[in-house]
Design a protein around this nucleic acid. Structure first.
Length: 886
DNA sequence: TTATTATGACGCT
DNA sequence: AAGCGTCATG
């Protein structure tokens, strides 16, 4: 049986995998030549046990330093090791220098054939064509070989370097000639990398990606390995199964366990049918083939990454416990992401289309594995927009669940696409309504249109032969299908609408009943002109006009409208007890980033494109088809409209926040800021004094057990007798701690409750208070996982918690500028607490409150509660874009 | 399961 | 096609 047979030479490829040797270390050594030749490792996340090693140089490896060690361990094995810390920016690791170094390498390695960037420091090359050409010129004398090629390793041949040279020059078999030629090219490329970039790398040369990858790892550093076809059976016979690409994880483990396989050779002896029965047709066939050294996975022609992502974990004590902290870090991530996107746009002319936010969170203060959730929406460029949208996504996640604290967050921008240069602002589509008051105030020019150009937009339209926008809109109007009115303010960049003027209001009608799908100037424009602002996306189309029907909602992705719609959705899902709120009630809309964004002139103008009246105004209810004026539209979103900021506590609150910096001194009194009356208590005084360090939720909501521990002497100042009533007393103080992470004593208490098996609780429970109720509500979804006995569980947990929290570095090292000395007193009526108050509280407390509210509703209005829950569930599991407002 | 952490690509549903 | 899971690696 001919196992390795190729019908014709054309199918035979020459593929190389090239991998940089301990890349980050090399980058650091190149940056700091003093490190060359010395034992070096690159560490990340320094403060805890010397940081985690992510790259170890060969000198250090020789001294027994392993990659899984922490910095401290490495020092033990190798006292004179040089530990270099990964650069940081925005409070997180910043891998820019490594990415750039990787790009440098790719630019060299992509010279001789198709090149695929496989990771920051690896590429695959398809050298088939180049090797075919080179075959004619392979030296016949081994001394004429490139020095680097002479050092090649050829698998299956005597593992002796000098023999490799003669192998290379004396091939007669086509497949081997091809490999030999490719090896010469690879040697030259590696040499080029060494000379030009001053990095060493290792390479594998074979007929496909899998074998090349396997080979590149066999002789390191700074060497190359060839895998002739004939070497495969011998190689695989001894090769552990897990060494094969893609078999290093669960699939490989299942093959080992279920079939008792150890080596790749073992896999080869499993019948195809068996593999396909176990793992499906595709995977089965794939296994069958790779076990024979066959792999037709092509080398893709791609030297740039397909997405940009950044993430940060908040382990142990650093876990984020409230939304302000979450927002802070979302912004830090957005800062980095935005920078990388801008760079990509500049260098490669690419623009991302999709923003993805991922969150890991715990629903209980246990050490159980966290839940991971991701949400996405079209991306709008700019730090503020990314921040706003990402925060909206994250917030939606946290509202949908009973998040206790957040242990990691990530943002990524995907669907990178090259875009035509010509773009136009949505404002192109506005014109003045005759007879209506125009309020072209100062700063009328859109501010957010860095990359847009009205003139070009116009041109583009004209080229389309649309006969100009105005005509088209008018036509649509006649059909009663679309209304977008407004007038360009000449060429001056002035528009009828600006958003910042608090005095002059917009009168333009921007409502729309129905957007004609087949033909609309907007659609045409969006199809023609894509730009940094992502292309349009129809979020939902309701159908016919009229009362009670779904409403048309067109959202131009990449404008404010996306986040607005998003927030509307988030609100719908997160406010069980509050149907029918307006946007102004949503604190998410009041946060500094969001508001800053919405006040922005361009942003508001772009907002016009979102003609919608959705779940914003009604939840689970039918709503009337309404035409909104721009004024109303903006007003609905908490813009500076007719509402008096002074008269509006929430408004005042966010204004205050908007003006102050991150490390505000908390100057404004709580009453001023929160718009509520502070009710000084012994506790709040203590908190203000800066001595209290810790809030203890000893009891449950409604019970009124509050304790504050004096940080100076650890003494408990109070532990009961305070009621959860009245307004939030300490808003300013509470905000001060927003970047801090508490490890409240309550953690332990809460954990214990969570750990109690359901049955125990039920039998124990005699008092039916809110607290027990909320506990109950939370446990109902979790109880199934509790199996062990209570005692063991609690003891275990205590020990673990102690270990975890005691050794952690201080939270403020990581969480930035909020220097805080005070404890907090939370006083509020949990039944009436408003959303903005809620937002300032630790997530854990939010969760408690939501649970309590839910429970109360269940008691008082069981039917409504059930209905609501159902609706919420439906909303939360439906993909965002498919949600419809009814 | 719990301090690896940060980043990618891709397949499945 | 949104969102999750798997695999890999400095």
């Amino acid at each position: 049986m001919a196992r390795y047979q190729f019908s014709d030479h054309a199918e035979l490829r020459a593929v190389s995998h090239i991998d940089m040797d301990c890349f980050y270390v090399q980058v650091e050594q190149r940056r700091n030549p003093e490190l060359k030749g010395k034992p070096t490792a690159v560490v990340q996340y320094n403060p805890w046990k010397g940081g985690g090693l992510i790259a170890v140089g060969y000198e250090a490896r020789a001294r027994g330093v392993k990659k899984q060690m922490r910095g401290d361990d490495a020092r033990e094995h190798c006292p004179d090791i040089n530990l270099v810390t990964v650069p940081t920016a925005h409070g997180k690791a910043d891998l820019t220098i490594y990415r750039e170094a990787g790009a440098e390498v790719v630019s060299i390695l992509s010279r001789k054939g198709r090149c695929e960037r496989a990771s920051i420091d690896e590429v695959y090359l398809d050298l088939t064509e180049a090797a075919k050409e080179r075959m004619a010129h392979v030296p016949t004398n081994r001394d004429d070989l490139h020095a680097e090629a002479q050092k090649s390793h050829v698998l299956g041949v005597t593992p002796n370097v000098s023999d490799a040279s003669s192998w290379l020059v004396s091939r007669t078999e086509y497949s081997e000639q091809l490999l030999a030629a490719a090896a010469l090219i690879v040697a030259e490329l590696r040499e080029a990398v060494r000379m030009e970039a001053r990095f060493s790398c290792s390479a594998g040369v074979a007929h496909n990606k899998m074998l090349a990858k396997l080979a590149s790892n066999m002789h390191k550093p700074a060497q190359q390995t060839l895998v002739p076809l004939a070497a495969v059976p011998g190689l695989f016979e001894e090769l552990p199964l897990k060494k094969l690409r893609q078999l290093g994880g669960k699939l490989g483990a299942s093959l080992e366990n279920q079939l008792g396989l150890n080596t790749a050779g073992d896999l080869m002896r499993v019948p195809l049918e068996r593999l396909q029965d176990m793992h499906g047709k595709n995977v089965g066939m794939w296994l069958f083939r790779i076990s024979r050294g066959l792999d037709d996975d092509p080398v893709n022609d791609r030297v740039l990454p397909k997405s940009h992502g950044c993430s940060k974990t908040f382990p142990g004590r650093n876990a984020l416990a409230d939304l302000p902290a979450v927002r802070h870090w979302v912004r830090q991530l957005a800062l980095e992401l935005d920078q990388r996107l801008e760079t990509d746009a500049e260098q490669n002319g690419r623009f991302a289309r999709l923003l993805v936010a991922s969150v890991s969170y715990h629903t209980e203060p246990t050490l159980a594995s966290p839940h991971g959730v991701s949400k996405s929406c079209p991306i709008a460029y700019g730090v503020d927009r990314i921040t706003a949208d990402a925060f909206g996504l994250v917030r939606r996640v946290l509202s949908d669940c009973q998040a206790f604290y957040v242990t990691s967050m990530g943002l990524s921008a995907t669907n990178l696409q090259a875009t035509p240069e010509k773009t136009a602002s949505i404002t192109t589509f506005l014109r003045k309504v005759p007879g209506k008051q125009s309020a072209a105030s100062d700063g009328g020019a859109p501010t957010g249109s860095e990359t847009t150009d009205r003139g070009e937009g116009e041109t583009a339209l004209d080229e389309e032969g649309n006969g100009g926008l105005r005509g088209q809109v008018a036509a649509d109007e006649k059909e009663g299908t679309a209304q977008i009115e407004g007038e360009r303010g000449g060429g001056s960049g002035e528009y009828a609408e600006t958003s910042t003027g608090g005095e002059a209001r917009r009168k333009t009608e921007v409502g729309a009943r129905k957007v004609k799908r087949q033909r609309s100037p907007l659609r045409d424009w969006l199809a023609a002109a894509s730009g940094p602002r992502p292309a349009s996306k129809v979020i939902s189309t309701g159908g016919s006009e009229g009362k009670g029907k779904g409403l048309e909602r067109e959202v131009l992705a990449g404008t404010a409208t996306q986040s607005d719609a998003l927030k509307a959705e988030g609100r719908a899902a997160s406010e069980p007890a509050e149907c029918g709120r307006t946007g102004a009630d949503d604190p998410a809309l009041q946060s500094e980033e969001l508001r800053g964004d919405e006040i922005d002139g361009q942003h508001a103008l772009e907002g016009v494109s979102c003609v919608e009246r959705g779940p914003d105004s009604t939840v689970g209810e039918e709503c009337e088809d309404v035409q909104l004026t721009l004024e109303e539209w903006i007003g609905d979103r908490g813009g500076t409209d007719s509402r008096s900021a002074a008269a509006d506590p929430e408004h005042a609150s966010c204004e205050g926040r908007g003006r102050t910096s991150e490390n505000e001194k908390g100057a404004a009194s709580s009453a001023e800021v929160a718009g509520v009356t502070a009710e000084p208590t012994g506790l709040s005084d203590l908190a203000k004094s800066g001595h209290a360090d810790r809030l203890d939720l000893g009891g449950e909501l409604g019970e009124g057990n509050v304790a504050i521990e004096d940080r100076n002497n650890g003494e408990e100042k109070a532990d009961s007798g305070f009621e959860w009533k009245g307004a939030l007393a300490e808003t300013a103080t509470a905000r001060q701690v927003r970047n801090r992470v508490e490890a409240p004593k309550s953690l332990e208490a809460l954990w214990q409750k969570a750990a109690v098996p359901k049955t125990d609780v039920q039998s124990e429970r005699t008092v039916e208070d809110q607290a027990g109720a909320s506990r109950e509500g939370r446990r109902s979804t979790q109880s199934k996982t509790r199996k062990r006995s209570l005692d063991g569980h609690v003891a275990d947990a205590k020990e673990k918690l102690q270990k975890l929290w005691s050794k952690a570095p201080s939270a403020k090292d990581e969480t930035g500028p909020a220097e805080v000395g005070s404890g907090i007193t939370y006083e509020f009526d949990w039944q009436e607490v408003d959303q903005s108050t809620l937002d300032e509280l630790p997530l854990a407390i939010q969760a408690e409150i939501r649970a309590a509210q839910r429970l109360q509703m269940q008691r008082q209005q069981p039917k409504a509660a059930k209905k609501l829950e159902k609706a919420q569930h439906a909303q939360s599991i439906k993909p965002f874009f498919q949600r419809k407002s009814r």
